[in-house]
Nucleic acid binder design. Sequence first.
DNA 1: CTTTATTACGTGTATATACTCTCTTTATGC
DNA 2: GCATAAAGAGAGTATATACACGTAATAAAG
Lengths: 153, 153
Amino acid sequence: MPTDETPDIECAVFHLRKTTRTITQLYDEVLRPTGLRSTQYSILRIVSNLGPFTVNELGTTMGMDRTTVTRNVRLLERMGHLRIEPGDDRRTRRVRLSARGRSAVEKTQPYWEQAQAILVGGLGDKRWQKLRNELTAIVNVGRKELDKRADTR
Amino acid sequence: MPTDETPDIECAVFHLRKTTRTITQLYDEVLRPTGLRSTQYSILRIVSNLGPFTVNELGTTMGMDRTTVTRNVRLLERMGHLRIEPGDDRRTRRVRLSARGRSAVEKTQPYWEQAQAILVGGLGDKRWQKLRNELTAIVNVGRKELDKRADTR
DNA sequence: CTTTATTACGTGTATATACTCTCTTTATGC
DNA sequence: GCATAAAGAGAGTATATACACGTAATAAAG
C-alpha cells in the first residue's frame, strides 16, 4: 500500500493532522539514534535559541497548553536535559537548558538536518519557505479566534 | 499574551506540530457542543464518504498507525457511531458507520462548517487551496521516505 | 490594609499517537 | 501437502495533548 493520494476532503484539521502525523513519524525515525523525539528536540531547540522561559511563555511560543508544557518539560528534566529553577516571582518557574541538554542538542543537530533535508529537498526550498509562512498565517488566524473566544468568557 | 509571531525557527516538524495544535484547539472548541473531537469527526467523515474500511485501509487513508486506528475506532464504536464487523477474510475487520454515526455526522456538519469558515475565511480560499495542496505534497514526500526505509528492513 | 481579582502553575482524567511484541490467518515455495 | 513467509490485527507501554479544577502568590480596589 504505497503513497496514496489523500482523497477529496476539504477539512483543514484533517489535512493538518494527517500531515503532522506523517512528518512526525519521519523525524522520529531519523532522530531515533539520538534518543530524542520530535517534540523533545523542538523544546530543547526553542529553549536553547530563545530561552530561558517560564512555563507560560514556552507554551505561548509553542502553541502548546500550559499543562502540556509542564509534563513535557518534566520529562526532559528527568532525562537531565532541562533545569527548572525558581523564577523572579514565587509563582513562576524558569526553564533552562542544562549542560547535558546543550550537548544533546548539538549531537542531535546533524540528524535533524538529515530529516529536514529529506523534507525540504523533496519539496524544494522555495515551496517550503512559502508553506512555512502559510502555516504561521493560519496559526495567527486560529490564535486570534481562540483569544477572542477566551475574552468573552 | 496575544498572537505572538513564531520566532525564527526553520524546523518543519515544529511548525507543523504548532499549527496542528492550534487549529485542533479551534476545531475542538467549535465542535464542543456536538460532543465530537476533531479526530473523531474526521474519522466519521472519512468512513462516511469513502467507507467502509479495514483497519489498515483507514490507517493508510489517515496517515495513522494501524494500532492508533484500532483504539480510536474502538472509542467511536463504544459511543455507538461505528460498527465493526468481520471482513472478507478472517484476519480483517470492516469498519462502517452506524445509523447513529450517520446522524451524528449530519448534526455536526454545521459546526464543522463554522470552524472551517473561520479558518478559510481568515486566510482566503485561494491561499487555503494552495496550502492544502502543499500539505498533500509533503505528506507524499514523507510517506515515500518512510516506505523506502520500511522496505530496507 | 484588607478584600477581591488576576496570574502562574500543578493534578486528575481522557483522548491521540506510535512502537514493539505476539497471535491468528492466509499466501508461497518446493 | 507442509514448512515458511507474509498479512492483518490487538495488547503492553510510553509520550503528547488539553480541559476542568484546585492552590498559592501577586496585583488591584476600596
